[in-house]
């Protein structure tokens, strides 16, 4: 690790941001290795149930309505469609399907989600800080965060200031994260790097360390509004950064790949990767999440297939 880049922290303390060049070919090759495994039968079923409990069920559209958010919250609580519930649960192999980890909505939708999820353990995550571009003055970003928290969000997904980051002004990025972390209060902070705009693995690694040193509870790949969103190699680079950070500080930072993870097969590949890079203690909703919307339907479909041995109507799983 190289320690020649610094930011200034509290009280003028100089904090080195560690980095080292990422072997691009190696990272891609290692990530591709996870796509070649075959996880079947019982292990697959275990993975599928685990995936559901790690999903941040997301809707981030201009067309979001309170009704749509309520509908998504209902699905977050009881993922199995009522049309197949009795057929499914009577099966000897079926286990109770867990609820998802969290729902993820815009701040204006947080009150509706909070009302719909009252009395459940499902977290309410809200994107804030002028999501997805992050190109607004800091005061507005902070107000955005405070509003979301006051409405009942207990997790905040912020975007880093890519304009500052890409122009080399790491201090601004660092300071913003610190101030937003303060504005969060008790709410968990997930820092979105938007890796699709950072372009190189070196920058992804550097941004990961910057975010973790500034106090991120989770680092997250993407907003889902930029392609490429989450990819296996980018996630691998971030997981390795989390590992380095854990080894040097003892602090466990969570990981959230988001965007583009549409089917169970891909999700299982991510689980394998987390297990191999960080170990099984990271395989919990407290330290690993999927940001996804259509993934849940596919996982349910796969569970149904594994349990009953037959394919069901697509339509019954995809009422969103």
């Amino acid at each position: 690790m190289i320690h020649d880049r610094f930011v200034t922290g509290h009280g003028g303390r100089k904090i080195p941001i560690p980095y080292q060049p990422v072997d691009q070919v190696g990272a891609e090759e290692r990530a591709a290795f996870f796509t070649k495994r075959s996880i079947k039968k019982e292990s697959k079923l275990d993975a599928l149930y685990a995936i559901i409990s790690m999903i941040d069920l997301t809707t981030l559209e201009g067309a979001d309505t309170p009704g749509r958010v309520r509908q998504m919250c209902a699905k977050a609580k009881f993922p199995v469609p009522s049309g197949i519930d009795h057929d499914f649960s009577k099966h000897p192999k079926a286990r109770a399907v867990p609820s998802v980890a969290a729902v993820c909505v815009y701040p204006s939708m947080v009150p509706h989600a909070a009302k719909a999820l009252q009395g459940t353990a499902i977290h309410i995550a809200s994107v804030a800080t002028a999501f997805p571009a992050g190109q607004l003055p800091l005061e507005i970003k902070l107000a955005d965060v405070r509003a979301a928290v006051s409405y009942g969000a207990d997790e905040i997904d912020m975007v880093i200031n890519r304009g500052a980051f890409l122009s080399g002004d790491y201090q601004t990025v660092f300071d913003e994260i610190i101030q937003i972390k303060e504005a969060c209060g008790d709410a968990h902070l997930k820092v979105i790097l938007e890796t699709g705009e950072l372009l190189t693995y070196d920058r992804v690694q550097f941004a990961s360390h910057l975010a973790m040193l500034a106090g991120a509870d989770f680092i997250k790949t993407s907003t889902g509004k930029v392609t490429p969103a989450a990819t296996l190699p980018v996630t691998l680079v971030m997981l390795n950064a989390i590992k380095d950070y854990y080894q040097s500080t003892g602090v466990r930072v969570g990981m959230k790949p988001a965007g583009g993870i549409r089917d169970s097969k891909m999700a299982i590949q991510y689980l394998c990767m987390v297990n191999e890079v960080l170990g099984p203690e990271w395989l919990t909703p407290d330290l690993f999440r999927f940001g996804a919307s259509s993934l849940l339907n596919d996982v349910l479909k796969q569970i149904y297939k594994q349990v009953t041995g037959r394919y069901y109507y697509d339509k019954i799983f995809s009422i969103d």
Partner: peptide
């Protein structure tokens, strides 16, 4: 059997 059981 996969054909006969497929719900679609």
């Amino acid at each position: 059997s996969h054909m006969a059981l497929h719900m679609e």
